[in-house]
């Protein structure tokens, strides 16, 4: 039966010892550990969260960078294409201009030549006319040494004029 009866001496020692240990641990033991462990748990949680966010940001940055690279490539391609186009255009324009310039020069030359030719022709005509007048004068002077002949020539001429008039 003594097995089931608490021994007062042991109860007292237990009360004192356990009470003291409880007091010491409650003051300097458990709160420190639980506080630290909870702090660390929070810290780990926060770290995980921020790591996730950082990952997300990196992901964003990556896609942004890719976007940038793509844009740049496009831009490059566009610039190259523009350059080619403008080169082509310039060459084309230059050609066009050259052709038109050439045409103009040829035209000018042609008109110059026309004028020259006309001038030459006019001069030629004048000289031929003068020459023919001179020849005609000499012929006429030789032919028209008599009256009759003079008269018939006049008459002939008048006729000619008439026919010309008609």
């Amino acid at each position: 039966m003594s097995l089931l009866l608490p021994d007062p001496g042991l109860v007292i020692w237990m009360l004192v010892a356990f009470g003291l240990v409880f007091f010491i641990l409650a003051k300097w033991g458990w709160p420190v550990i639980t506080k630290m462990a909870e702090k660390r748990a929070n810290f780990i949680g926060d770290s995980l969260k921020s790591a996730k966010e950082a990952n997300k940001q990196v992901e964003n940055l990556k896609s942004e960078m890719q976007q940038l690279i793509d844009d740049t490539r496009e831009e490059q391609a566009r610039i190259l294409k523009d350059a080619t186009d403008s080169r082509e255009k310039i060459i084309h324009e230059a050609k066009q201009k050259a052709i038109s310039e050439a045409n103009k020069i040829v035209e000018d030359a042609r008109s110059q030549m026309q004028i020259e030719r006309e001038n030459i022709l006019n001069e030629l005509r004048l000289q031929v006319a003068e020459l023919s007048v001179n020849i005609a004068e000499k012929v006429i002077r030789k032919e028209l040494d008599n009256q009759d002949k003079q008269m018939s020539v006049i008459k002939e001429m008048l006729d000619e004029i008439d026919t010309l008039k008609n």
Binding site: D7, P8, G9, L10, I12, W13, M14, A17, F18, L20, V21, I24, L25, G29
Partner: peptide
């Protein structure tokens, strides 16, 4: 009135020492 340091009391002290 018996408050001897019995075997169990020493065991108690050893236990709380280990615990602390």
């Amino acid at each position: 009135f018996d408050i001897s340091i019995t075997k169990n009391v020493v065991g108690l002290f050893i236990t709380i020492t280990v615990l602390l």
